[in-house]
Simulated scan of single mutants.
Amino acid sequence: MKSDLSVTYLTKNCEMKKLKSERHHWWPECVSQHWAADDGTTGWLKPDGSCVRTRPANLGVIGNGHHIKMKRGDEPTPWDQSFERVFDKADSQFPKLITWLEGLEHRPMHDVMELKQRFIAQPCTDDELLRMTECAVSLAVRGPMNREASVALAEHLRGPIESGERNRLIGLNMRNAQRTIADSIGARGKFVVVYSQDKEFIFGDGFFHNVGNAQMAPHSPKLFVPITPNICVLVCRPSGYMVEPRLSTLVANDNEVNLCNDTIQVYSKNAIYFRSQQPIPHESFRCAQHLSYEHPGNPINNLIHSIPGVSARDSSFDHFYNREACSDPV
């Protein structure tokens, strides 16, 4: 009788655990809609230089990307689960975040040459910084770059992995990352909102951050995340910094926007998205790999060390990084 009851329980539990097929967005529609041009479409540039325009709601979709199915095929198990709801908090707060970012004081300073002097300190609350962290981290955690990082070690040791098992490994490594990373950063660190003028930012299936496949709270996290074609956010906690000002704004000139866009091309693999200004694919993007900056003197690190209250970057070991190759980290 006990055995029969156990079988009955497991059978019912399996039925309850069966996951419905869903379209999971790693680029949420409440964000991608801001990248639509006047005709309602967003540009998608591919590594081979081809480009298509499509509705932003069709971009950034992974079918069942946040499901974890523990058995091959469609047969459910009691351990099947979905972590899609983990991102509900970020998705519900993105509209309010974008409205707030658009309303912060910012102005170009053409007559000021020193970058550190162009930052404008902003008043902020813990809740506002928590919202920025939650949303920025969510784009890093569920993005394709982090998905690949979540299974990279297993593929390195074992070689190609069957798609069902590969997706399970990705899901199991990703499911706790949002809370681990976002909660560890919270409202602690330095926060910068970077605005463009005439030149637009681009977005991609990879961007600058160091929190990929984080199983533990990152010690010195840093993320530079395009939110709209005119706004990027920088969230970081340097190894040493003065707490105030916690939040600053900066208006980037066209050359600085180009450097930010170059970074997106380095970190992206299969997709670069843009509103109206189509970028020219660089060699790093044409490699069709998620590359990363190896040299510590890269544009985003230099920006971080220009933030008021952050010390200058130690360049004494830069000579160890004087290597360039498309197949290696940039």
Rank of each mutant, 00 (worst) to 15 (best):
D4A: 11
L5H: 03
S6F: 12
T8D: 15
L10S: 12
M16E: 04
K20R: 11
K20G: 10
H25M: 03
P28N: 00
P28I: 00
E29T: 10
Q33G: 03
H34M: 01
D38T: 04
D39Y: 11
T41K: 11
W44Q: 07
L45P: 09
C51T: 04
V52P: 08
T54F: 01
P56V: 06
L59W: 00
G60F: 06
M70N: 15
G73D: 13
E75C: 15
P76K: 12
T77S: 15
D80A: 12
D80P: 06
Q81I: 11
S82T: 15
F83D: 01
D88H: 02
D88W: 05
D91T: 07
Q93E: 06
K96L: 01
K96Y: 13
I98M: 02
I98F: 00
L101N: 05
L101K: 11
G103W: 02
G103D: 05
H106M: 12
M109E: 10
V112F: 15
L115I: 13
L115H: 11
K116F: 12
D127V: 03
L129S: 13
R131V: 09
M132C: 10
V137K: 05
L139R: 09
P144L: 00
P144I: 06
M145D: 09
E148M: 05
S150T: 01
V151M: 00
V151C: 10
L153P: 00
L157R: 04
E162M: 11
G164H: 14
E165M: 13
E165H: 13
L172F: 09
A177W: 00
A187R: 08
I202G: 03
I202K: 03
F203Y: 10
G204C: 13
F207R: 12
F208T: 11
F208P: 03
N210M: 08
G212F: 03
G212R: 06
P218M: 04
K222I: 10
P226W: 02
T228C: 08
P229H: 14
C232G: 07
S239T: 06
L247D: 15
T249C: 07
L250N: 13
D254Y: 08
E256S: 07
V257C: 03
N258E: 03
N258K: 01
L259M: 14
L259K: 14
L259D: 13
D262Q: 06
T263N: 10
V266F: 07
K269E: 15
F274T: 02
Q278W: 02
P279K: 05
P279I: 06
P281Y: 07
H282Y: 02
S284H: 06
S284Q: 10
F285Y: 13
G297D: 15
I300T: 04
I304D: 11
I304P: 12
H305K: 07
I307P: 01
P308N: 13
S311H: 07
S316G: 05
R323E: 15
R323W: 10
